[in-house]
């Protein structure tokens, strides 16, 4: 077995009295693409956000390349104890958001170079040259000097992917990357994600797009009410869903 990049063990998370994750474990090995599917409120986005510590899991362990997150107990719950570890984890796992979240006051090029320069402390000239390559790879190098508001949704999401790649992360986390896009713009983003999967990048993908999950994943995890209901290889899982809930879910998404 190849090295585990992200290990989430028995993750628990609740918001107030609402228990969102009730002990979920998934492991992404190097080069593996895992898709998280499930209806809204199943906890799939929260699980992804727990991985890079945007949300702080109340129970369970998180290991990034074998390094376990250190926690401290506070009056308001469990928090990461080590600020340097927190930042190291976030720089090693790049997130792509549903609403793109490009920084609106920066050009596309600045968006891509911002974190490598200000967080990783790399040389600006060098990062800029690389950034243009990443933008070229996602097909929007001609938009480098434009502001996000001047781009279409699909272009913005591809810029956001370039921003994620520029961090040279160990893994990419996609939080419903195509859900905010019109169908014709969706395809240009899907193309880029497929390309990244084919390159052997480690990725966890939260998605409503079953075709995308089937095409790019090594493994698909179906979450239901904060627990893993079923998981497996996409061909098997989509063709022969074992649980009643997954059958219902797949038939509902197929007709929508």
């Amino acid at each position: 077995m190849t090295q585990a990049v992200i290990e989430l063990q028995q993750i628990e998370k609740s918001f107030g009295t609402l228990s969102v994750l009730k002990g979920v474990s998934i492991t992404a090995h190097k080069g593996e693409v895992i898709s998280l599917i499930g209806s809204s409120g199943s906890g799939k986005s929260t699980l992804l956000r727990c991985a890079n510590l945007l949300e702080w899991a109340e129970g369970g362990n998180i290991l990034i390349e074998g390094d376990a997150v250190r926690w401290k107990e506070t009056s308001s719950g469990r928090k990461p104890a080590d600020a340097a570890q927190l930042i190291s984890i976030r720089t090693n796992l790049s997130m792509v958001f549903q609403q793109f979240n490009l920084w609106s006051h920066m050009t596309i090029l600045q968006n891509v170079t911002e974190a490598p320069v200000s967080v990783l402390g790399r040389d600006r000239k060098e990062v800029e040259a690389e950034a243009l390559n990443w933008l070229d790879k996602v097909g929007i190098v001609d938009k480098a000097d434009n502001y996000p508001s001047q781009l279409s949704g699909g272009q913005q999401q591809r810029a956001a992917i370039a921003r994620a790649l520029a961090m040279q992360p160990r893994a990419l986390l996609f939080d419903e990357p195509t859900s905010a896009l019109d169908p014709e713009l969706e395809q240009e983003v899907v193309k880029v994600i497929k390309q990244l999967a084919a390159e052997g990048r480690t990725m966890i993908l939260v998605t409503h797009d079953m075709a995308l999950a089937r095409d790019v994943s090594d493994r698909v995890v179906f979450l239901h009410q904060g627990l893993i209901e079923e998981e497996g290889e996409p061909a098997e899982l989509f063709a022969n869903p074992k649980s009643e809930r997954l059958r219902q879910f797949l038939s509902a998404t197929a007709t929508s």
């Binding site: 890079n52 945007l54 600020a83 930042i87 190291s88 976030r90 720089t91 790049s94 997130m95 958001f97 609403q99 979240n101 920084w103 609106s104 006051h105 911002e114 974190a115 200000s118 967080v119 990783l120 921003r163 961090m167």
Partner: peptide, 28 residues
């Protein structure tokens, strides 16, 4: 909030988020 959260997701410290994201965007 998403603008600030994204910055922390990319490893920025609170101080960096304030100076590099919040301050320039606040003027608008």
């Amino acid at each position: 909030r998403a603008q600030l959260e994204t910055a922390s997701a990319y490893g920025m410290t609170q101080r960096q988020i304030f100076w590099r994201i919040l301050m320039p965007q606040m003027w608008v």
